[in-house]
Design a binder for these strands. Sequence first.
RNA 1: GGCCCCAUCGUCUAGUGGUCUAGGACGCUGGGUUUUCAUCCCAGAAAUCUUGGGUCCGAAUCCCAAUGGGGUCACCA
Length: 448
Amino acid sequence: MGSKVRARFAPSPTGFLHIGSLRTALYAFALARHEGGDFILRIEDTDQKREVAGSTQAIQDTLKKFNLLWDEIYVQSERHKTGIYEKAAKKLVEEGHAFYCQCKAKNAKEEGFSNVLRDPCRDKKLSSGAIKLKVPENKVLTYYDFVHKKDISWNTDTVYDATLLKSDGFPTYHLAAMVDDLDMKISHILRGHDWLPSTPIHLLVFEYLGGKRPEIGHLTDILSATTGKKLSKRRDSVFAEQFLQEGYLPEALLNFIMLLGWAPKDNRELFTLSEFVEHFDIQGFQEANPRFLQNKLDWFNGEYIRKLSDESLNSKFKIQNEKFAELTEEKQLQITKLVKDRIAKISDLENIAGFFWKPHKVDKAILGGNSDSHLTDALNIISNIDKWELEELNDKLMAKIKEKGYKIGDFFMDLRVALTGSKFTPPINDSIIILGKDKTINRLKSVL
RNA sequence: GGCCCCAUCGUCUAGUGGUCUAGGACGCUGGGUUUUCAUCCCAGAAAUCUUGGGUCCGAAUCCCAAUGGGGUCACCA
């Protein structure tokens, strides 16, 4: 592979890290690290209006949570102060590849589909104003896309005279990113599919700027499972931090995301970050847009939860659930063990084990027909038990069930519902031991 | 509307001209283990490979077109 691989992740600080951006970062990271190359973080903050305070830091914090650590970091607004972008733009004007423009800025979105490709100022020979790209006539522009694994081309007659330097002196993406990619010796540009349509502009800028153009690849869009449209901040939950808060583990989210847009030849699904880096293959990029299916994410998360040690699961519960954290260490660990196989997310703890700390509510309608005798016998045994131990409890309860000829399942179900208010809980006898004698007796009495 | 990308089970995908009456995973259904749920194990249903033309002895795989889906058209990134 000739020169060193250098891949960059270049977010704009306009908010929290999006799930799609996280995936882009992950792929750029793996692309670089697989070859022993560099992963570069570049903050693209050339639009002061859109910048959201604190998001530069927030993006870095989130990246760290996923262990996507960068080797170098650059901030475009800082680089802008050196005049690097302005210099590049002026060079293009001097060489006849760009021109000054003093038209009023416009927003095509607000104006509908304007098909004005050629700017009225391009031949006015102005000497100040914004700087725009002078797109040549009837020229075919081609590049090989390493994600799509094919050549993609445009005729310049469909490319508009894009703005490179705004009238406030700041560069647009079209200039800043290309100048930086060249200057930072980026070997691979990996970016979202939304950039594909403006690639001919970048091809031209690269050509005029000179130097070695990086390889370019456009990732698929992640589609919403419900709408079939690209995930959007307005409609879908898309922020990485949001998922973390809901109780998804970073490793699980990352594992899920990595398979939306990339797949290995052997169809393996479980990858830690370092395994992914090791097995990463640029040929594995997907061309079709995947859908974000939550139940697959849940499956991954369950897998990762089960791989956690009891202790580390326990500490995650403590961070996530205040009431749980107030329990004794011993009880916490006991509950953690019982719950581990039964949850998909950290936040599921409240649903499955909340009865341990919540005042319990029992809907008597879900109790069985024999519940009165079941519960009375249970209350008797539990009140008179000498050793508060699981084995003792099991034996005594089973002996009574045998003696009275109860149906085992019905008996325990009534006990379960009476104590927890739910039909779905961890093993009930284990739960009773954790709950404690007094609470158990009180709950039984209140139902009877 | 112009330009661009895409198209295999519901979903994520394997598949790069014959071994495909299409394999795996999630989900779903049934069964086993189990005092519930879950975990775990086993089995099953589920794709006329979007359609129509080619090329070829032979196509999910190559070409063309249609259809459908997605994206994009700013002095935002």
